[in-house]
Design a protein around this nucleic acid. Sequence first.
DNA 1: ATTGACAGATTGTCTGACAATCTTGGAAAA
DNA 2: TTTTCCAAGATTGTCAGACAATCTGTCAAT
Lengths: 220, 220
Amino acid sequence: MAGENLSPARSMSRKDGVVVEIRRAIVTGALLPGQKLTELDLAKNLEVSRQTVREALAQLTREGLLVQEPYKGIHVASPSAQDIMDLALLRESLDLLALDQLLKDPTGEALQHVAAAWETFKHLENDDDPLVRHQAHIAFHHAIWLASGSSTLLHVAPVVEGLMTVALARDLQLRQDPQREHSIHEKYVEAILSGDHARATAAIHDHTVGSASELVHMLG
Amino acid sequence: MAGENLSPARSMSRKDGVVVEIRRAIVTGALLPGQKLTELDLAKNLEVSRQTVREALAQLTREGLLVQEPYKGIHVASPSAQDIMDLALLRESLDLLALDQLLKDPTGEALQHVAAAWETFKHLENDDDPLVRHQAHIAFHHAIWLASGSSTLLHVAPVVEGLMTVALARDLQLRQDPQREHSIHEKYVEAILSGDHARATAAIHDHTVGSASELVHMLG
DNA sequence: ATTGACAGATTGTCTGACAATCTTGGAAAA
DNA sequence: TTTTCCAAGATTGTCAGACAATCTGTCAAT
């Protein structure tokens, strides 16, 4: 069969277009935490029907980027310091789970995927567009979970990545320390690829809890 | 101020009604894994509009109970043995995370909530309706995550609980060993309440990975 | 100060329609 | 015979407009 290693050529549905547009607005700071959104305004501005907006908002709500109160309205999530630390602990747990699966693979193929994702990330981490940088970051971690071969990790990924997006949205605005970002991720990848479980565990802790507490400290 | 310790009186939206109805059908086996669903049929049978059905289906899809392929259709998820084991490992990680938070609470109030949830569960675990038993089971574990005080655990809870629902749906049909269920959960609760970290860790492993491998063995 | 009624705004739901896409079967071409 | 193409039917994706349900705020009445 020809064309067996091509990516599926899917175009986005309109709902997904709305989703990425709102996500972009949150990441870039065009929509600030706590800001209220109304379906009618969004439908008008994005030039889609109210129905389509509703479906997009429902999705973003389930991903944790928006908060919805029935009959009252929807607003951009504004995570507390505690929420950010909680998220870090959750990510630490899940990354450790992924690590166990990765190191269990006898072929080493899984680790090769991690190395490939790291190369892709390095090309994008200094992009001019902050949205591109953010997406590259998310995609990098997603690739690790994907390489772990755990189907359930991929199920919870949208939620965790959504929470990461809101938590980091402020970070994107106020922090500019790309070198530190790079170095943390480099240690992270090298520790995983080394196969040294203890070293990887420490790197994961640094990368999740360490970064989060620094972020919280910076905000407080 | 009067009425300060009343529960909020919320009635379900129609979409949520559809969600619980489909969920019930899956749990009771009225909808079998792999079965295809069409929006129009559901709308007719449930006597709601297609829109409302769509919103419910989107939610159930993100919870992992349904699988959706664009323009093709939606069918009930049918997890593989590997999926079930994956889910067990994920639950083990998350329960351990919750445990850490629970034991960190100096007031002991969190553990009191766990004990209360256990009492509620004991009243319902032998109910005639299998749906009630299933919901009691889910609610019990949800209560533990709630008691842990982790907001992010509550965010991922719907997904994990959805995956548990499909995984256990078959179990509900073919397995009838309520005593073993009770004993496992009893050990689980007692270990947590004892404050003994090592003992709780072992109980959590038994409860998640142990049960799952037994289930997989029974299916295979 | 509390209650009740009214108006405005927004979300929740319905109906009907059309566009986009998948599937299937058979006709046409090689 | 096998492959390719096309038309028909089914289902999902999206749209428009409308009405019902619910929240908020204001203002009069008690």
